[in-house]
């Protein structure tokens, strides 16, 4: 469980990136933190594994305050996958890359072997285990980076902008993967401004703007609330936009899924035909 209590954060250069954020994320939750670039999303999640410490307020991970534990200790619980895989890949083979963190955490050799196998397999990378990550395509590098974090099986997983530069199929695979994590009762936190992706996953959405949380709730409630979306400079998902443009029909407002939209429209269109 992550508890954020009235956290303020100021960078050394004076920029105040968080201005009083309070938030609780329970075990097994799937949360999307959304907002414009510069709203403080990444700054917030960097507090979850202790990379940043609050200037004021406190952050608790499983009841332990992050200022009292090292990043390495917190990282065992909180896996953080950065936006750009090239900022972490450095080993000669994908296999070594995945073993890196396990060695840092002092796992035994036999366990490391097993875990590496498991992670490679989970993300469909087994055929690349002896290949240099630098030879792989962008999408594959992203998967190696993900595998290198999953390997130590953290109970909380943070993905920073996982869909940037990904094509439709890669996003679909990512969605499947997150759902799989969810069934294993893992906490998954994604930082993103990809509304269509969030609309398809339907997680809890935390909307940020200028270092503050402006809305928090179910995706279909938040992503259809024009007022808060405008505040956070987020464009509503397309299905929501369609519904917003037909106010006189008194349609239910909280629709972001294509198939839900279909059900409602079919009913209307058919009753209309009669």
């Amino acid at each position: 469980m992550i508890e954020v209590e009235d956290v303020y954060f100021r960078y050394p250069n004076g920029v105040e990136a968080l201005k009083g954020v309070s938030l609780t994320i329970k075990n097994g939750e799937f949360v999307a933190i959304m907002g414009q670039n510069g709203a403080g999303k990444t700054t917030l999640v960097k507090h979850f594994n202790g990379l940043l410490k609050p200037t004021k307020g406190r952050v608790l991970v499983d009841e332990a305050e992050t200022t009292k534990v090292s990043v390495a200790t917190l990282a065992r619980k909180v896996g953080f996958v950065f936006q750009n895989p090239d900022h972490q890949l450095f080993c000669e083979t994908a296999e070594e890359e995945i073993a890196f963190a396990l060695k840092n955490f002092g796992f035994k050799e036999t366990i490391i072997k097993r875990r590496v196998q498991w992670a490679l397999n989970l993300l469909g990378l087994t055929q690349y285990k002896k290949i240099s990550p630098f030879m792989l395509s962008g999408g594959e590098r992203k998967r190696v980076a993900l595998a290198s974090v999953l390997a130590w099986n953290p109970k909380i997983l943070i993905l920073d902008e996982p869909t940037i530069g990904q094509d439709y199929q890669q996003k679909e695979k990512l969605r499947q993967f997150i759902l799989q994590m969810k069934t294993q009762r893992k906490t998954v936190i994604i930082v993103t401004h990809d509304v269509e992706f969030v609309a398809e996953c339907n997680p809890r959405v935390v909307l940020m703007r200028e270092g503050k949380i402006v809305a928090d709730g179910e995706a279909k409630e938040i992503l259809t609330n024009e007022e808060v979306l405008t505040q956070a400079s987020i464009v509503p998902p397309q299905i929501a936009q369609i519904f917003m443009q037909m106010p006189s029909l008194q349609l239910p407002k909280n629709i972001i899924d294509v198939y839900e939209a279909r059900e409602i429209l079919l009913k209307m269109l058919r009753s209309d035909a009669k």
């Binding site: 439709y168 996003k171 269509e196 998902p237 397309q238 369609i242 294509v258 198939y259 279909r262 429209l265």
Partner: peptide
């Protein structure tokens, strides 16, 4: 990634 509006049209 076919736009959702287009998808909805075809489904209907």
């Amino acid at each position: 990634g076919i736009p959702k509006a287009t998808r909805l049209y075809h489904i209907l």
